[in-house]
């Protein structure tokens, strides 16, 4: 048997990112590469800087130092073909960054209210990102809305209802549908199962696993829940006081943690 191809192309490089609000508040010296098709979990307790890091990585907040480099394969021009283009997220300008966020990336907020427009219909929420990409055909947008509602296990007959009439778990699934409808390559998720009941959480986890596999998504996932990380993430970074203290294969971090803080974190989990 031949050696399997284990190298995968890089999708995102974080280069020495620092964003501090005060001493040890924020994140410092973060350096890693995310590869295509990889789910990277960022774990740590509240205040460890993981959400700050996610904001910097996802284009919402410029770092004090360092760079976020995205390897785009979207063709820049007809002549350039599908060659990779390295985009420095905070050097490309606001308009380009917004376009990237709209077209190639997706962001799933912990609170679905932050990612949805609660007053407009579920269908309009799903269709909005498609419209931003230039789709205007009402029938197509509605069909996409229904299709995605089914994929996230929402009743498509509720397509005309406003999300404010949905439960928290339903809103979260709608937010995921709204994010994935444009088939992004890279999705950022901030505690996607955070505020949900346990039964709803299980359902969402299963759905996220299936969708990431089927769509070949790359995901950067922030969570404080190690069980969620075990189920979803291929690799983990453990953060404490703004710094990454340990990084590696998920099973290895959880079964054979090396750093004193990771050992403490892993051994403090309650297992029912």
């Amino acid at each position: 048997m031949k050696r399997p191809q284990l190298k995968r192309p890089a999708l995102l490089d974080a280069r020495n990112i620092t964003r501090l609000y005060g001493p040890n508040q924020g994140c410092q010296d973060i350096d890693f590469t995310l590869h295509q098709g990889e789910v990277l979990g960022i774990v740590g307790e509240s205040g460890s800087g993981k959400s700050t890091l996610l904001r910097v990585l996802s284009g919402l907040e410029a770092p004090d130092e360092g760079q976020v480099i995205y390897h785009s394969t979207q063709q820049a021009s007809a002549a350039a073909g599908s060659a990779t283009e390295n985009l420095d997220l905070y050097a490309i300008g606001e308009a380009r960054r917004r376009a990237l966020l709209r077209m190639e990336w997706g962001l799933v907020h912990q609170n679905p209210r932050d990612g949805l427009r609660l007053g407009v219909s579920a269908g309009a929420n799903v269709g909005e990102r498609l419209m931003a990409l230039g789709q205007r055909h009402y029938g197509d947008l509605r069909a996409a809305g229904q299709d995605w509602m089914e994929r996230v296990e929402l009743d498509p007959r509720r397509i005309d209802d406003a999300p404010r009439t949905f439960s928290g778990g339903m809103q979260q699934r709608l937010q995921i549908a709204r994010t994935l409808v444009t088939q992004p390559r890279l999705v950022f998720m901030d505690e996607p199962t955070g505020g949900l009941d346990v039964s709803v959480q299980a359902r969402l986890l299963d759905m996220l696993r299936t969708l990431t596999r089927e769509l070949g998504l790359s995901v950067i996932l922030v969570t404080h829940d190690l069980a969620v990380a075990r189920l979803l993430a291929h690799r983990l970074m453990v953060m404490r006081q703004g710094r990454v203290v340990e990084a590696g294969l998920t099973d290895q971090i959880l079964d054979d943690p090396q750093h004193p803080y990771t050992q403490l974190l892993v051994s403090s989990v309650l297992t029912p």
Partner: peptide, 24 residues
């Protein structure tokens, strides 16, 4: 030991394991 060379597991980068487990 593959036909076209050896693969050392003790220092394999974390991102390689996912595919190694999938295929090997």
């Amino acid at each position: 030991h593959f036909d076209d060379g050896a693969l050392e597991l003790s220092d394999l980068p974390a991102q390689a394991w996912h595919r190694l487990r999938r295929d090997v």
